[in-house]
Simulated assay, not measured.
Amino acid sequence: MPKNNNKKKNIAIGAGVALAALLLGAASYSATKPDEPSSVTAKEESPADVSADPQAGVYPELAKLARRDAKDPLAQGRADAPVVLIEYADFKCGYCGKFARDTEPDLVKKYVEDGTLRIEWRNFPIFGADSESAARGAWAAGQQGRFWQFHAAAYADGSKEKGFGGDRLKELAKEAGVKDVGRFSDDAGSAEAKAAVKKDQEEAYGLGATSTPSFLVNGRPISGAQPDEVFDQAIEQAAKAAKPSGAGDK
């Protein structure tokens, strides 16, 4: 009997997540579709085409997706930080690169370093075999504590145009300071890497995400490489909401 109750509870939670995530799916950012240079070029001029109102709803079901694993090599920031930003991204995605280069470093300086924010990465390869290879390579770099260095190398200007084949992944691993490149290659081709990437990918699809980058800030969906102020406002509002009742400002 308890098993049936648990099953019903899980189904209810899953349905709640799916319904809440309609906002994320509806606001899905589609300017990064591959092999369409004309449409991508046109939208490059306005990377915030999709509105991501920081006043939009916050969904408790989505907030529960934060893993808060202190040993997670694909995360940075305190495991008990009041705000968790989950990023679903693809290394072949131009706007993911824009976020990584232009916005994320400032978020780290302003919020991660003072303990307010934790950033959790989710591999969400949607642009084919190269995307999948890069995702597994990133995971493999993480096994040697060099995920964020690999992330920076893979998102450097002009990097994605070189592809993410086996030799290129080794180059990125060396650039990222991965000590054992042989182990890196083995890890990237392992069943564990495939399973880890699939887990992240299925989580994103389960949310209704169809493009990258997509984010959750304490359960608040944000789609696309939005302006810095969108993230600042969402993070600051989430931090304020997370304060214990009656707590004063810093």
Rank of each mutant, 00 (worst) to 15 (best):
T210F: 01
L23H: 07
K170N: 09
G16N: 14
F124Q: 08
A27T: 14
K9N: 15
K8E: 11
A154G: 12
D200R: 10
A239K: 10
E203H: 00
F99W: 10
D249Q: 02
Y155Q: 14
A140E: 03
A48M: 02
S159M: 07
Q226G: 08
R220Q: 13
N218D: 03
T103Y: 02
P227T: 09
Y155T: 03
E192V: 02
D72N: 13
Q201E: 11
A12M: 13
R101T: 03
P244H: 03
L65G: 03
K109R: 13
V230C: 10
S30N: 13
R122T: 07
H151P: 11
V84P: 00
G224N: 05
D80P: 12
K64M: 13
D157K: 15
K98M: 12
P60L: 12
A239L: 09
E61P: 00
S211Y: 01
C93M: 11
D90L: 08
K110S: 11
K9G: 09
R78C: 05
G25W: 04
K240A: 13
E61K: 02
D49H: 05
E202L: 12
L23F: 00
L24Y: 01
V181Y: 02
N10D: 13
L74C: 04
I13C: 01
N6V: 05
F147G: 08
R122N: 11
A21Q: 08
A27C: 03
Y88Q: 04
Q144D: 04
D167A: 14
D35C: 00
K179Y: 00
F124M: 13
F99V: 05
S190D: 14
D187M: 10
T32I: 05
N5Y: 00
A241T: 02
G224V: 06
K71T: 06
K179A: 15
Y205G: 15
D180N: 15
P213A: 10
D49K: 04
K33D: 15
L172F: 01
I11R: 15
T212D: 08
A156H: 06
D232I: 04
A156S: 15
Q55F: 03
L107Y: 01
A195Q: 14
E236F: 00
P227F: 00
S39K: 14
E113Q: 13
A48C: 09
P227Q: 12
D200H: 05
G166S: 13
S28K: 10
G137T: 08
G166E: 14
D80T: 09
F99E: 05
A234C: 07
E87H: 01
D200Q: 07
L62F: 06
P37F: 06
R168H: 07
P54S: 08
A79S: 08
A188P: 02
E120M: 09
F127D: 06
M1A: 14
Q233I: 11
D232N: 15
E61H: 09
V181N: 14
D130G: 14
K43C: 12
V197C: 05
E202P: 01
K3V: 09
G128Q: 11
N218M: 04
A242P: 02
G246S: 11
L62G: 06
A129S: 13
T212V: 10
K162D: 07
G57P: 02
P244C: 06
P244G: 07
A56Q: 14
R78S: 15
S223A: 15
